[in-house]
Amino acid sequence: MTDLRLSATQLERYSRHVIMDEVGPEGQARLLAGSVLVVGAGGLGSPVVQYLAAAGVGRLGIVDDDVVDRSNLQRQVIHADGDVGRPKVESAREFVDRLNPDVTVEPHELRLSADTIATLPDYDLVVDASDNFATRYLLNDYCALEGIPLVHGAIYRFEGQLTTFENDGDGPCYRCLFPEAPEPGTVPDCATTGVLGVLPGTVGCIQATEAVKLVLETGEPLTGRLLVYDAMDMRFDTVEVRQNPDCPLCGEEPTIESIHDVAYEGRCTLSAD
């Protein structure tokens, strides 16, 4: 797929990848030619950006409309004290620029919506590191309809949930698991409930692992499985996720055929019109 040759500097930088049969120079070239969209440059997005940049994923799109707050720094490790008040996408880009000149960051300082998502360039896959149901359901629906692999990760206090949707036509999708979002306000966010600072680090690192495997097309992704992580008990449970025939998006009689059919603020169900 690529005739990209690794330079001497790249061979040295990525030597611990190149030495492995599962990656090799071809796999590293694939990473350098690869592109990933990371939605959210916060707790989950920080380790995702760190490890994808270090791995040499050539093009990293980063979406976030927020600025760095001092209360972010307990877990959002790509931002520093001097970044407080600055756009997270800018701080993230500077982090990557310092780490790896092979990686081009495309900062998208915007809130994802059914309209703005269409303005983004194409990426090989999407990592959902967002913090709200509206964005999560939008990403799920968009990626399923467009056939783009999606790596899902979410956190709550001391717990994490992870899965991968390959979106290759067979399902499942996030709506197979949770057909619609909870009523707004019923599931609290990090500000109201708190979050153990290192928790998104663990979850984001697993998301980065999934993304690298998908770009390399190697290993077994978390397809059809929800990994539930309990940091307090240090316990990982795996839950089967099957395609739901009644799924409104990927079921036998889908009612969602376009992201414009859905009202994403609220419970992410069909528009009432």
Binding site: G43, L44, N72, A154, E159, L177, V187, D189
Partner: peptide, 18 residues
């Protein structure tokens, strides 16, 4: 029997003011 809701957290915490 396991009972769990979806969770959304992950990025900023700017939704609710301190």
């Amino acid at each position: 029997v396991s009972v769990f809701p979806p969770v959304a957290g992950g990025a900023s915490d700017a939704v609710v003011p301190n």
